[in-house]
């Protein structure tokens, strides 16, 4: 059995190159506490990592580990309680054009056409209409939606909407693209297409990507490194270098490196001893009698 730490010389060489590049995003001792009616809860504790230029980092973790909170803090949509977030060495305070964001729910502006949505960013930064129009066309071409420039978002499929959202974020030419489970709502086939589409875009642009997902295969397929968080409070459990060589293809999911990495992630996220969760949960799950709504003789198995 191959270990996920074993890397071919090419992969090792690639990581060495990545670490030579400057750090675009640096997270130092980041902590986040909420005050709720039930008292104070600690969502994130002492998160440290750095993302290098043109790197693609995925963040995974069990539900409740604060991955969404983390990315929202990076985007500037939420405040941090302690520590610092540096983009290009400058501390983050509030949302900015240097960080583009793609949301899980698309969140396209329904009153604007596809082109209008992409033009929104340039118009906000004061570009005149015709310039913004030209920029929008160029980015729509990149995501292959030129034909749908004048359609409204509700007329598009989920995958197309997410491509508009990506174009809308990229048109601002951010340093880093933050993606919060962007393909979570898509069906399996569309998701696979969007993944390779994203890799194409990433290859051709000077863009650094931080990608949140709960899908282990997606993380391994896309990422250079995977940041694994654990829950209550959200802490960095491990930062894994993915040993699967690039260029990535869907066929690689059967390779030894891929399977070893997957097995390792699996063991981190679903450790066998806490499978049953809290004692009450265990009691419920352990109950052997199940209510049957069917005739016993109709056993489908």
């Amino acid at each position: 059995m191959t270990d996920h730490l074993q890397q071919t010389p090419e992969v090792k060489e690639r990581f060495a190159q990545i670490y030579e590049r400057e750090a675009i995003l640096e997270v130092q001792h980041l902590g986040k506490r909420y005050v709720t009616a039930k008292g104070e809860t600690e969502a994130l504790r002492d998160i440290n990592f750095r993302v290098h230029r043109r790197e693609l980092v995925c963040v995974i973790g069990p539900s409740g580990c604060g991955k969404s909170t983390l990315i929202r803090i990076l985007a500037g949509l939420e405040s941090l309680s302690s520590g610092a977030v540096l983009v290009d060495g400058k501390p983050v305070s509030g949302p900015g054009r240097d960080r583009g964001m793609v949301f899980q729910g698309y969140s396209l502006f329904p009153w604007l056409t596809v082109k209008g949505n992409v033009m929104f960013g340039p118009e906000m930064s004061g570009h005149p209409h015709n310039i913004a129009d030209g920029m929008a066309r160029q980015w729509l071409e990149l995501v292959g939606l030129t034909k749908f420039a004048d359609a409204y978002p509700h007329e598009l499929s989920g995958g197309m909407r997410q491509r508009v959202a990506i174009a809308r974020a990229l048109v601002n030419e951010p340093r880093i693209l933050l993606m919060d489970e962007p393909f979570g709502a898509l069906d399996a086939q569309t998701r696979a297409k969007m993944q390779s589409h994203l890799l194409d875009i990433w290859k051709n642009l000077d863009i650094t990507i931080l990608f949140i997902t709960h899908d282990l295969d997606e993380a391994i397929y896309l990422a250079d490194r995977i940041l694994v968080l654990k829950a209550h409070p959200g802490e960095v459990q491990e930062l894994i270098e993915v040993p699967v060589p690039r260029p990535r293809t869907p066929g690689q999911s059967m390779t030894a490196e891929f399977r070893a990495t997957r097995a390792h992630l699996e063991s981190l996220i679903h450790p066998p001893e806490v499978e049953a969760g809290t004692p009450e949960e265990a009691a419920v799950l352990g109950q052997s009698h199940m209510i049957r709504f069917t005739n016993v003789t109709d056993n489908v198995e």
């Binding site: 054009r97 964001m101 949301f103 969140s107 906000m124």
Partner: peptide, 20 residues
């Protein structure tokens, strides 16, 4: 999230009301 999306695209102040 529409307002948040607009903020990440560089919208702030009164324009959040008039444009979003």
């Amino acid at each position: 999230t529409l307002i948040e999306a607009a903020r990440t695209l560089g919208t702030r102040g009164v324009r959040l009301i008039t444009r979003v």
